[in-house]
Amino acid sequence: MRDLRLDLTNLWRSAARVTSPQGGRLIMFVSARSGEGCSSIAASFALMAAAKSSRSAWLIDLDFRRNPLYRAFEDGFSKKIGGPGRAFDASLNEPPIYALTPPPPDGSDGNKLLTVHQIEGTRLLVTRFRNERLRPAQKVQLRTQPRWWAALRASADWGVIDAPALERSAAALAVASQMDGVVLVVRADKTSVSDVAAMRLEVEGHGGKVIGVVMNRVRADARFADRLIG
């Protein structure tokens, strides 16, 4: 993962125009295939959002089993940014945005497995799913849960969501309708305009609003290209 904040000025200007009648804004990043740099874009954008927030910005990793964003900050995502601090409960006093199969034997919904960690020296909070608490063969799956997203809007200025690539997970489609905007991340040297159009249709078919496209790895940078979806 790379810190791409210097390349995302145009994206920030576009996303900052997105409004939410319910409080904080929710922006999701998703790619069609793995390896297109989506997590780098999401983490970089989240740092920009945190720097401009009066309350906080949450960076929400929907890849529960791997927690790549938490691990990236733990490993020093940016030389100028500290690591994650202590764990806090991320349930927001609402039913969780995930379901466990089989459910816990005590009949609970396991709503203490998602934590959030403040990144040192910033207003950014990054989620981590506590896989170590799962029982053998127990699986976790994302669920829509509008009440949790509403609670996040009430507590933070921004929610920046990094979704797994569509080729390996439908997580982005499951929560697209809860977002104020969805940004598609594509590799400029591998993804055609028709591929972008197909991905847009899929996201919008699930209630999402695509606000732009980030073309990653254009001369080793990332560029915002809203003209591709106009």
Results as ranks from 00 to 15, higher is better:
residue 60 I to A: 12
residue 23 G to K: 02
residue 32 A to M: 12
residue 122 T to R: 06
residue 220 A to P: 05
residue 56 S to N: 12
residue 189 D to L: 11
residue 54 S to W: 13
residue 145 Q to F: 06
residue 206 H to K: 13
residue 32 A to R: 13
residue 4 L to M: 09
residue 16 A to Q: 12
residue 129 F to K: 03
residue 72 A to H: 14
residue 34 S to F: 08
residue 201 L to N: 11
residue 61 D to L: 10
residue 171 A to T: 06
residue 60 I to T: 09
residue 195 D to P: 01
residue 54 S to Q: 15
residue 102 P to E: 08
residue 26 L to D: 03
residue 208 G to K: 10
residue 52 K to E: 15
residue 224 F to K: 13
residue 197 A to C: 04
residue 125 L to E: 08
residue 217 R to F: 14
residue 212 G to Q: 12
residue 185 V to W: 03
residue 227 R to M: 12
residue 29 F to N: 01
residue 86 R to T: 11
residue 39 S to V: 04
residue 165 A to S: 15
residue 129 F to L: 03
residue 217 R to Q: 13
residue 103 P to Y: 10
residue 147 R to S: 13
residue 80 K to L: 07
residue 165 A to N: 08
residue 104 P to Y: 12
residue 170 A to F: 05
residue 91 S to W: 01
residue 102 P to R: 15
residue 115 T to L: 02
residue 32 A to I: 11
residue 160 V to H: 09
residue 130 R to D: 13
residue 198 A to H: 11
residue 134 L to C: 08
residue 40 S to V: 03
residue 122 T to N: 08
residue 201 L to W: 04
residue 81 I to D: 03
residue 7 D to N: 15
residue 196 V to L: 07
residue 6 L to G: 15
residue 176 A to S: 04
residue 152 L to S: 00
residue 116 V to G: 01
residue 37 G to N: 12
residue 127 T to V: 12
residue 42 A to M: 12
residue 7 D to Y: 15
residue 106 D to V: 11
residue 94 E to K: 15
residue 50 A to T: 04
residue 216 N to S: 13
residue 87 A to R: 05
residue 213 V to N: 00
residue 219 R to S: 14
residue 131 N to Y: 04
residue 171 A to F: 06
residue 48 M to W: 00
residue 12 W to T: 00
residue 182 V to P: 00
residue 172 A to P: 02
residue 69 L to K: 02
residue 4 L to F: 11
residue 94 E to P: 03
residue 114 L to P: 01
residue 22 Q to M: 08
residue 100 L to H: 10
residue 214 V to T: 01
residue 11 L to R: 00
residue 207 G to A: 13
residue 107 G to N: 11
residue 204 E to S: 03
residue 73 F to S: 06
residue 93 N to Y: 04
residue 112 K to N: 13
residue 102 P to Q: 09
residue 158 W to F: 08
residue 193 V to K: 01
residue 119 I to N: 06
residue 24 G to H: 02
residue 179 M to Y: 01
residue 34 S to G: 15
residue 74 E to M: 13
residue 68 P to T: 07
residue 28 M to C: 04
residue 38 C to W: 02
residue 90 A to H: 05
residue 179 M to S: 03
residue 72 A to L: 06
residue 124 L to C: 05
residue 90 A to W: 10
residue 165 A to Y: 11
residue 205 G to V: 11
residue 103 P to I: 03
residue 139 K to C: 05
residue 126 V to Y: 01
residue 108 S to P: 05
residue 68 P to Y: 10
residue 42 A to G: 10
residue 103 P to C: 07
residue 132 E to P: 06
residue 187 R to T: 10
residue 47 L to M: 14
residue 33 R to N: 14
residue 101 T to R: 14
residue 150 A to M: 08
residue 102 P to F: 12
residue 98 Y to N: 07
residue 223 R to T: 09
residue 102 P to W: 14
residue 207 G to P: 04
residue 19 T to S: 14
residue 36 E to I: 09
residue 225 A to S: 14
residue 36 E to D: 11
residue 180 D to P: 00
residue 84 P to K: 14
residue 209 K to W: 06
residue 11 L to K: 00
residue 116 V to F: 02
residue 80 K to T: 07
residue 175 V to I: 15
residue 18 V to T: 09
residue 167 E to H: 12
residue 58 W to D: 06
residue 190 K to V: 09
residue 45 F to A: 08
residue 35 G to L: 09
residue 214 V to F: 01
residue 49 A to I: 07
residue 222 A to T: 02
residue 96 P to H: 04
residue 142 L to A: 10
residue 55 R to M: 09
residue 149 W to R: 05
residue 230 G to W: 03
residue 122 T to I: 10
residue 162 D to C: 10
